[in-house]
Nucleic acid binder design. Structure first.
Length: 284
DNA sequence: CACCATGTTCCTTG
DNA sequence: CCAAGGAACATGGT
């Protein structure tokens, strides 16, 4: 469930549920997701620690905790990969098949499940440290975009997925932002004009902010039985009613009419990822 | 069986 | 140094 808006919604829901809670025990079912932290170290560090805060940086979740006998706060870094979820569950509810990490919080369990195990749950904070500016933050300006893209001939769609350029844009919102800005995904980064980059800057912020706003209206139930964080992310079950995909204008809409001009939406592959666009509204 | 999938990272080739 | 393409990771859906 992974781009910036989905992570932001998860953080908002999870933060009040974990703050002040103390980790009694840690079960590592999939050691690969904690890499490069060792299992022993994770358990020793987290046992007895209390959640102080939870925030987001790009697509990463950043938990901070107080540990007994330590002055500095500990940072615990989460990343959902392609299929990760985090939620609280009662101790009696059955564990999901792909539970990777289970934290015993006393009354509840906090579960990190991840079908494909591409996600992370680690003490290593080098991931978020390497990120570019937050797209919804003050540092992300049209001027920044101009300077950051100047040196690259790479296609803009590919460059938007570069987390060191801007943090948090993924494959879905990259296509959506370019459509809204009326820019071809094939356009070379260093050939975009100032008006184009101004539009792209605004489109990125709008697309992400709208998604967060709309995601905020979805009721999530983290602690109920059989609870999931469902309903919001692309392809989730609650999406049967089209809640999520309805507001995506081009992504996964191959052959469907463009919402602006009715030209059929096209798909092609860039950097091994699908790109969707309207050939009329986003001319090369 | 085939192809696709919200992400990241590594490797090769130019 | 950079760009582009591919594969890998691992599992499931259609």
């Amino acid at each position: 469930m992974p781009e910036l808006p989905e992570v932001e919604i998860l953080v908002r829901h999870l933060a009040p549920l974990v703050k002040g809670k103390t980790i009694r025990d840690v079960e590592v079912r999939r050691p690969r997701v904690i890499r490069p932290t060792a299992e022993r170290e994770l358990r020793q560090t987290l046992r007895g620690a209390t959640f102080a805060n939870l925030s987001r940086r790009g697509k990463y979740l950043v938990f901070t905790l107080h540990a007994p006998k330590r002055t500095e706060l500990i940072s615990l870094i989460g990343h959902l990969g392609m299929t990760g979820r985090m939620f609280l569950a009662g101790k009696k509810s059955p564990l999901p098949k792909h539970a990777a990490i289970i934290l015993d919080l006393g009354k509840h369990l906090m579960i990190f499940e991840d079908t494909r195990y591409f996600g992370r749950f680690t003490l290593d904070s080098s991931g978020p440290a390497a990120l570019g500016p937050e797209p919804l933050g003050k540092e992300f300006t049209p001027t920044y975009l101009v300077a950051a893209l100047k040196r690259y001939t790479q296609a803009i769609k590919v460059k938007l997925l570069d987390q060191t350029l801007v943090a948090g844009i993924g494959n879905i919102y990259a296509s959506e932002a370019l459509f809204r800005a009326g820019i071809s995904p094939r356009a070379k980064s260093n050939q975009l004009t100032l008006p184009q980059l101004t539009r792209l800057h605004r489109a990125i912020r709008e697309v992400l902010a709208r998604a967060i706003r709309q995601g905020s209206t979805v009721p999530l139930d983290f602690a109920g039985d059989g609870a999931r964080d469902g309903l919001f992310y692309y392809g989730s079950k609650g999406d049967a009613n089209g809640f999520y995909s309805e507001r995506l204008l081009v992504y996964d809409r191959l052959g469907q009419p463009c919402p602006k001009c009715r030209t059929p939406i096209r798909r092609f592959v860039q950097a091994a990822r699908s790109t969707y666009y309207c050939p009329a509204c986003q001319p090369t």
